[in-house]
Design a protein around this nucleic acid. Structure first.
Lengths: 190, 190
DNA sequence: CGCGACGTTGATTTGCCTCAACGATTGTGG
DNA sequence: CCACAATCGTTGAGGCAAATCAACGTCGCG
């Protein structure tokens, strides 16, 4: 549940819990439905309760690049757009039937004022995301596609079998064709 | 000055300013001197007052990968190590004579308790870093080396002439040899 | 001066991409 | 419930961006 997730980093009393949950808006997103489209202004942060979302952008040649997967228990948003208030380039789409809680930017600001502990909570969440993002950047600079794939398997063991290969390929940064070859090479080795 | 930088995101009264500055430790780092070595536990965040630092890691083949430059006005740390308390893989080195203020992890926690506004400040700083890190990841997935170089030039115009080419090559993710060729191609074009 | 780091250039190799063709699977409307 | 389209995964042939390895000139600096 979402309060458990928050509870890992800050301690809330009953009133604070109630305030927090009262600001959340429940939403069900069907498979392949978009929660956010490129060009829109991102006005909320989404907590994935069940299912899985992906955040991706399209480059000038029409290719997708998946920036992040958000399985159950994770937050996702187009942070650039959320912070700047400008239209973003990110799409957020459900890779399966997904339930989320939305926290609007306005309510998030309210929360910061009324329960400053939430500044701490989101600082910690953001720090962890930054560490992960830097590590992934480093992996892209120093590992081969094969090594990145193996790492992906250890980080998201549950996603491997429920996700089309195409999307894993996009995440690790290779074409679906190359990904297919790479995978059959790995299978042959073992 | 460092208080101007903080003042862009939060408003402090005189006592708070004094508390904050009293926790900072001034340090001068000479060219090529290390502020942090791979394998050490990172116990502080550093604010660059003058000069420039770089954060980099070495891969298993002995190649450097520059994760970030920190010119004047920027913060730098091995966030992974700082958060987890474990030894990190990052090196932080001065690319020229540099003056920094160090804020120890312990004092940073003190600051969070005594002046909760600093939670907000570091949340915002971290959010901005995350946006930048994600954008760079995206650039590495979707742009050619040449495009990344041109982008680097617009983002760090001042660094281009004061940094060895080797280091720019490392930042954008190519070998020094390829970088040299690429640059002479660009010059020929114009 | 002489050493070590840097930048350049050439020849060759390689990891990954592109384009194209083809089955297998999934989904959809009639 | 079937027919057909769309998407997905696989495989082959060929191409290109960038890496590798090596040689050489240059510069800053102890």
């Amino acid at each position: 549940m979402i309060l458990d997730s928050v509870g890992k980093h800050i301690t809330l009393d009953e009133n604070e819990k109630e305030l927090f949950t009262s600001l959340l808006q429940y939403k069900k997103i069907r498979h392949r439905q978009y929660l956010l489209n490129e060009g829109e202004i991102c006005l909320w942060s989404a907590f994935v309760f069940k299912g899985c979302l992906k955040g991706f952008t399209m480059d000038k040649n029409g290719f997708d690049h998946i920036l992040s997967f958000a399985p159950a228990g994770w937050w996702i948003a187009d942070l650039y757009s959320l912070i700047s208030g400008k239209p973003g380039k990110m799409n957020i789409e459900a890779v399966e039937e997904t339930d989320v809680f939305l926290l609007s930017k306005k309510d998030q600001e309210t929360l910061y004022v009324r329960v400053p502990k939430f500044e701490r909570f989101f600082r910690i969440i953001t720090e962890n995301s930054l560490v992960a993002s830097q590590q992934r950047l480093l992996d892209n600079l120093s590992l081969t596609a094969e090594e990145r794939y193996l790492k992906f398997c250890t980080i998201y063991p549950t996603l491997i079998n429920q996700l089309p290969q195409k999307q894993i390929a996009s995440y690790i940064g290779v074409t679906p064709e190359f990904f297919s070859r790479m995978r059959s090479n790995l299978l042959r080795k073992k």
